[in-house]
Design a protein around this nucleic acid. Structure first.
Lengths: 215, 215, 215, 215
DNA sequence: GATGAATGAGGATTCATTCAT
DNA sequence: AATGAATGAATCCTCATTCAT
């Protein structure tokens, strides 16, 4: 998108390590691990290249610190309501809070999507240790949701991941949305539209008593 | 990152240029433009790095050739039925043919997603020259679909892009699916499940007479 | 010693790889592995830094190639007369040929001494595979030499290694000799003196009927 | 290279400066000036790299302090008996005291040998100001030793330097000895063997009435 | 006296690209 | 069409050193 002109992280914005993480997060999200040089990250923070290594032992470690920092709140969010997935209210609330968080950290979905595309090993750990438990618990909780059990068993995992794509896709494909919609998808006024759409879509997919034949 | 099992493109598989494109497609899909070196592509084809330049003038040009080759059939597919989006039969058929094509070229969605994440300028051209016209025509055609006009005006673009994510996400996130499902998402037996799921999901989103209050 | 002004290996002197080896040998001998940069080696050969890597995969590999090339002839020399150490004539001849070789490759002893000082692993392989067998065979052959068996058993290994130091020390300490002697120790006229000295010294240590009390 | 077993200089062992010197001596001996980083020296002493500069103005100065501290006692030893070289008793005694000193500071010969190999300028000063006078005085004193004057004039400097190699070589090549002898050359039980050998060897080279034809 | 952070210079190595063969 | 060799620029990272705290 616009304004590629080297934005600098303002010097007052938190500790040096935090400012490095901020700059790295933005850059890794925009161009991926291989597409970003340590020099560039340092430049954004107004540091010499070598100074990065006073805060992080390697580019890889910095990358992982970025992921860690970004993913923590999300897995927390999910883990938090471990026992209450079956309540529709909770589901609504969770959706709202997730959307909220993503709107505040729009780099995050891109980072995750890049990690997923790479099949990176960090993803592996994340999925195994955090997501799978939550996923399984969530799934079993959903068994109580009428609209969910309408779906064939085999489709249910795809449905859940589909919901994930519906949610994350908006951010990972912001560039595409911008082009197609003709307006900035991250503008404040799009936020409500986005949430409304997600509510409606998940409603149709999850909470409807469906007798309609698939054809 | 892992899984480097040096697959070589077999010498008999088409012209040298084609074999280069094949190797490049797989690698660019897996690791992105910046994450792949010309040397590595050449290695996969059993060529010296210099030889690549007998077939493509630059790495960038090779990358674009890969995109061109991959995207052509898809835009053709879409452009083909320019006038007939309003028929539900056609929509069903289009979905089936798209899924078909993607199953045959599973690298493609990854390439596209990377392009989208990068906000690459190639994407720009593609969207402006090809997708936007089709998108607009498709949208206006869909106005005849009852399940579609149930959606608020503002949501409709999001819905269409959401369908895109539902479809493409399966491939872009193959690594995630593999981990979560515990089985190879590209195995032949998953194919039908995937198509079934897509049918059911688009059905619910598009073709249902919905009176259910969104809450 | 004199003339530190970047001597360049003349372009006509053999293949590029050989010229790299020559330059590297001289530099590694003079300043050790860590004290020499690839850039400097390349500079001496009149090459760009990167070009070195067209001929050797790494600095370490280049270093080992230098050792290999230098040590080969010496171990060959030793291995050659495997069965004939007991003949005094052969011993004389061996000494002469060794001295000859070292005078032609005066960098070599320095390289070896540096490797010995480092306790490098290359030395390990060399000693175990090449030197130890020769050493053992040589030792047992010497049992027939009267002047040798005069030495207490425990001293014999030290004696052999002492002879090695007498021989190699002249080259490893060339700088010291230059300073102390006040003349270039590698000048042609010193060569005979050196050989004479070695003959006389080994004679006294090895071939004398000694009854003199050690004190 | 191997054997990095991070030995730390114990905190109680003397003043900080001394502990730095100890750590630096061991490391410089093992890997040479260029092969050791200030960070590593600091690490061994349990200090931050910057702290080194509270005690020594530069890496180079630290290196020279190490040499100074190590070489002082040796040149003292030699200078001490300036007038009494001609006595055989003194020679014996000197040898014993030298060996003694070296066994207590086995890093020293390695440091010296590295300096010699480098042809370092510190060596230059050392040789010119200290060694040459002693060497000349020693030589002229030896003129009274019958076994010495048996040697041709031209050989005599080589003989003296040869004795030096016999003595120092044991320490500079400790790694080689370890490998060839199959036991630790610095173990206490080797000490006597070593001294005995040196006595016997210098005896044969220096104190024998030799009529035996060199052949 | 100790240290965390900063930095310019330089370390080895890889990059995409060119060119003569 | 293929390649070995060459190269300038860039890669990540380490170096010795400085300085404010």
């Amino acid at each position: 998108m616009p304004g590629e002109a080297a934005k600098t992280v303002p010097p007052e914005a938190g500790s040096t390590a935090t400012r490095i993480l901020d700059a790295a997060e933005a850059l890794f999200a925009k161009r991926g691990f291989a597409g970003v040089s340590v020099r560039e990250i340092a430049g954004r923070v107004g540091l010499n290249q070598a100074s990065i290594y006073n805060h992080f032992p390697s580019k890889q470690a910095l990358y992982e610190a970025v992921l860690e920092r970004g993913l923590g709140p999300i897995t927390d969010l999910l883990a938090e309501g471990k026992g209450s997935f079956q309540s529709r209210d909770f589901q609504e609330q969770l959706l709202e809070r997730l959307v909220d968080h993503l709107w505040r950290t729009p780099h995050l979905p891109k980072l995750i999507q890049r990690e997923v595309l790479d099949g990176g090993e960090y993803l592996e750990r994340l999925v195994d240790h955090w997501l799978t438990p939550i996923y399984e618990q969530g799934t079993s909780a959903m068994e109580a949701t009428p609209g969910f059990v309408d779906w064939p068993l085999a489709d249910r995992p795809l449905l859940i991941l589909g919901l994930y794509h519906l949610l994350f896709g908006y951010f990972t494909s912001a560039a595409l949305y911008a082009r197609v919609l003709g307006k900035d998808p991250l503008s404040p006024e799009m936020r409500r539209t986005h949430l409304d759409f997600l509510r409606r879509a998940s409603d149709r997919l999850l909470h409807q008593d469906v007798n309609a034949p698939t054809r």
